[in-house]
Amino acid sequence: MTSIAVDWTRCEGHGICARLLHEKISLDEWGFPLIDEPEVEPHLVKAARQAAMACPALALRVE
């Protein structure tokens, strides 16, 4: 099962991940990603990988 997680020491709160994967990621009041359910449904795996590659801080992990 694929899941996503944020490396908090890297994340700079750009919020790009929330835009590219809004189905799974929202932003808290300070602009940092909130993930309700880390498991990624099969139809979202591709979008999750794209979001991880787009993260300028390399902070979003998909595994």
């Binding site: 908090w8 020491t9 994340c11 700079e12 709160g13 808290d28 009041e29 300070w30 602009g31 940092f32």
Partner: peptide
């Protein structure tokens, strides 16, 4: 101050 939610959240 390494992690955003801790650095911004705890003062709030």
């Amino acid at each position: 101050g390494q992690c955003g939610p801790c650095f911004f959240g705890l003062p709030a």
